[in-house]
Amino acid sequence: MNILEIKDLKVYYMTKNGPAKAVDSISFSVEKNKTVGLIGESGCGKTTTARAIMNFVKEPGEIAGGEIIFNGRNILNLSDGELRALRGKEITIVRQEAQNALNPVMTIGDQIAEVILEHERIDKKAAWQRAEKQLDLVGISHKRAKTFPHEMSGGMRQRGMIAIATACNPDFIIMDEPITGLDVIVQRQLLTLINDLRNRLNLTALFIAHDLSVVSETCDEVVVMYAGKIMEKADVVSLYQNPLHPYTKALIHSYPSIRGERRKLKSIPGSPPLLVNPPEGCRFHPRCEFATDLCRTVEPEIRRINGHSVACHIVK
């Protein structure tokens, strides 16, 4: 059963030079109790997608089309009140850089209890006890419930964010680069925690990262985005072992594997295109070593090949 279905979603940022198509007709779905990874370089539309799922796109951005069906309802048609009831309870988000994402003048306990109080009929004392339990769950002692964000390490703050995001037993949780910007040891600990919670709480999640090796450990399926488009979709093992799209291959080769063989890393030449005026045809063609005339003129449709969904003319 699909918890979340994104159909033909378009998010444009209105600029002086016309709309920048940050997310341009993407479709994918997330099944119950599965984690889908969303990867791509910076600026490819990952975070914009995450924000759209919470119907949270800020000016000058706007959702230009498509549907986001969550538990049978289109999120884009909900009223403000319905959205409020949804956010923090049914859909939650763990954002990158918890340094700034936590309120500096409230204790971590208060920031967890607050979301429980908002969404459940519960008194303050019970909410506080729940908050303490949440802290224990994410590996911070409940004795530290009264500490302020500045008294916590980066890893602890991110654990705090996870405690907030899981406080109301959400149906769906978005993790927007939850381990970015932390040192590798803390990253490892957080990944272990996230995997542990995934199993214990039966989470359904979207895991956003720019690093395939991180996604490979936490996700069941992977969606690869480039310049606002989906390039390839497949289950994680198949994608990692048998990538089809040239961009996916390039991504895999640009990051060291944590456990795999040692090999020379390759960078992808060039940089992602400006989204106001993206290249014609396949958006990746200027950086693709296999590009043909067809790639330069005709945008590839998404096709099913070997169990992957892939948007590329070259792949047979």
Binding site: M54, F56, L83, R84, A85, L86, R87, G88, K89, T92, I93, R95, E97, N100, A101, L102, N103, P104, V105, M106, E114, V115, E118, H119, M161, I164
Partner: peptide, 26 residues
């Protein structure tokens, strides 16, 4: 413009709570 206001919104808090507890206090 701070991130914690976005966090407060993503928690589904009422606007009055966001204004008082998160925005104004800071």
């Amino acid at each position: 413009d701070q991130d914690y206001i976005v966090t407060a919104r993503s928690k589904g808090l009422r606007e009055s709570v966001i204004l008082r507890k998160h925005a104004l206090r800071n």
